[in-house]
Every structure is written in structure tokens, then in C-alpha cells.
Simulated assay, not measured.
Amino acid sequence: MKTLIATTFLAAAALFTVPAASAAGYDGDLEKANIDVTNEASLQRGANLFMNYCMACHSTEYMRYNRVGRDIGLTEQQVEENFIFITDEAGDPVGVGSLMTNAMSEDYGEEAFGVVPPDLTMTTRINGEDWVYTFLKSFYIDESRPLGANNEVFSNVGMPHVLWELQGWQEKVVDEDGNERLELVRSGQMTPSEYDRAVRDIVTYLSYMGEPMQLDRQRIGLYVLIFLGIFTILAYFLKKEYWKDVH
């Protein structure tokens, strides 16, 4: 029992201390993600972008395809057609009730990127939504890196700029005051505002993945507040009735 309590305490401590450690290497200001996890359209766009650009390397193995589809307003057929790209041992697409893993082995991931790409189910819970949002907007050209790109938020990251087709390429430039900033030098398929929305959609989806119950929690919370309001009124009038003859 003591071991269980100690383990639980350490896990909770790690959960609350990891975000500060993750962002500790970045001294700049984080951009506000301003996401809305109740925006179903944003969740669907984010899921589509994540599946097409991120899922090949990063799994979200603590969630199932059908649960995600149900929560963000998609049918199982839509999930099967648009989200499931891996096959089972027989070569058939995995079932819609399967966990959301990918086909990349840990050995291949470490050989290709120098580190095994992490599972991203809890990434917004660990690093924060603003950190992830800023990170995805902060890749720039760096020919000294093995994959030709670096990141302003996460220096020497082993991840390539997988969204370069959408954003284009940025370079580090120094202004007249000697301050460094990132400047878009090669346009992508999206305008800067369109890319900002795309990144916001991805972060919205990842925020939902990190805490799926938040969709229900917010809805249930509204009902609880309504109940407490009505109960408070009834309790007030009941109190007046009990104490009306007391002087």
C-alpha cells in the first residue's frame, strides 16, 4: 500500500513539473494558441492534418479510432476512409476499434531521427497548448542540422519540419537593433494566417486527445451550475420558512 501511494505521488509530481522543464530551454514569449475544444469543425480539421502529417512518426496509442470519431462528430466509415493507414499482420487495415498506433518501429525511428519519436497523446498536457502552438510555427532553415531544419523553441530538435509544404520556409534574420527573428523567405501552400489556423486546429485536436473528457466535463459543469443555482434559491426560501416564527 505504501509503495502504491508513493508511486502515485511521484507520478502526480512528475505531471506537474514536466511542463516547466519542457519549456525551460526557451527564453522567448510563447504565442497564445487561443483554441476552442468545443469547435467541432476545428477538431475535424486538426484530426485530418495530424493523420496526414504527424501520424506516420508519432502515435497516439492511448486512444482508439472509433472513440475519436465519435467525439469529434465523424462516422466510423469516415474514420476508416480518412484516418486508418496501417495494416495488421494479414495486410488488412486495422479495425476502427484499434488503438491509434503507427507502423514505425522504435529501431527505425532512432536510426532515422536519432531518437524515438514520442507518443503525442499527452503532449499538450505535458508541454502546454501555447508551447506546442509556438513550436509548430518556429521551424527555420539550418543547413548544419542533419534534416536541414532547426526550431526556435526546441533547439536542435530531431524532428524535420513536416509542415513545410503548408508554411513554407523561414530563416533567422537579425534586425537593425541586433534582435533575431524568423522571417518567411519561401512561401508555402498557405498564407501565414491560414497556416496559423491550421496549427491552431492541430493543437485543438491534441488538446482534446490529452483530455477527451473535457468535452463532457464542460457540458456537465453547466448543468451542475444550473442545479446549484436552483438549489440555492430553494434552500433560501426553505430557510425563510423554517425561521419565520423565530424572533
Results as ranks from 00 to 15, higher is better:
N52K: 10
N52R: 08
N52L: 09
Y53K: 14
Y53V: 09
Y53C: 07
C54P: 05
C54V: 13
C54E: 07
C54I: 08
M55R: 04
A56F: 06
A56H: 07
C57Q: 05
C57E: 06
C57F: 07
H58Q: 09
H58Y: 07
H58N: 10
H58V: 01
H58L: 02
S59A: 15
S59C: 00
S59Y: 00
S59T: 12
S59H: 00
S59Q: 08
S59R: 10
S59I: 05
S59M: 01
T60Q: 01
T60H: 01
T60D: 00
T60S: 00
T60I: 14
E61K: 11
E61G: 13
E61D: 07
E61V: 01
E61R: 07
Y62Q: 13
Y62V: 09
Y62S: 13
Y62E: 12
M63K: 08
M63G: 00
M63A: 06
R64K: 14
Y65R: 12
Y65F: 15
Y65A: 13
N66Y: 03
N66R: 09
N66S: 12
R67L: 11
R67K: 13
R67N: 12
V68R: 02
G69L: 01
G69T: 04
R70D: 07
R70C: 00
R70V: 02
D71Q: 10
D71C: 03
D71I: 01
D71Y: 04
D71K: 08
D71E: 11
D71S: 14
I72S: 04
I72T: 08
I72C: 00
I72G: 00
I72N: 01
I72L: 12
G73F: 11
G73I: 05
G73Q: 04
G73D: 06
L74C: 06
L74W: 11
L74F: 07
L74N: 01
L74E: 01
L74I: 03
L74P: 03
T75Y: 07
T75F: 05
T75A: 05
T75E: 04
T75K: 10
E76W: 09
E76H: 03
E76C: 02
E76Q: 14
Q77A: 14
Q77K: 15
Q77W: 07
Q77R: 15
Q78N: 10
Q78P: 04
V79W: 09
V79K: 12
E80Y: 14
E80C: 08
E80R: 15
E81W: 06
E81A: 14
E81G: 06
E81N: 15
E81M: 12
E81Y: 08
N82A: 13
N82E: 13
F83Y: 15
F83E: 11
F83C: 15
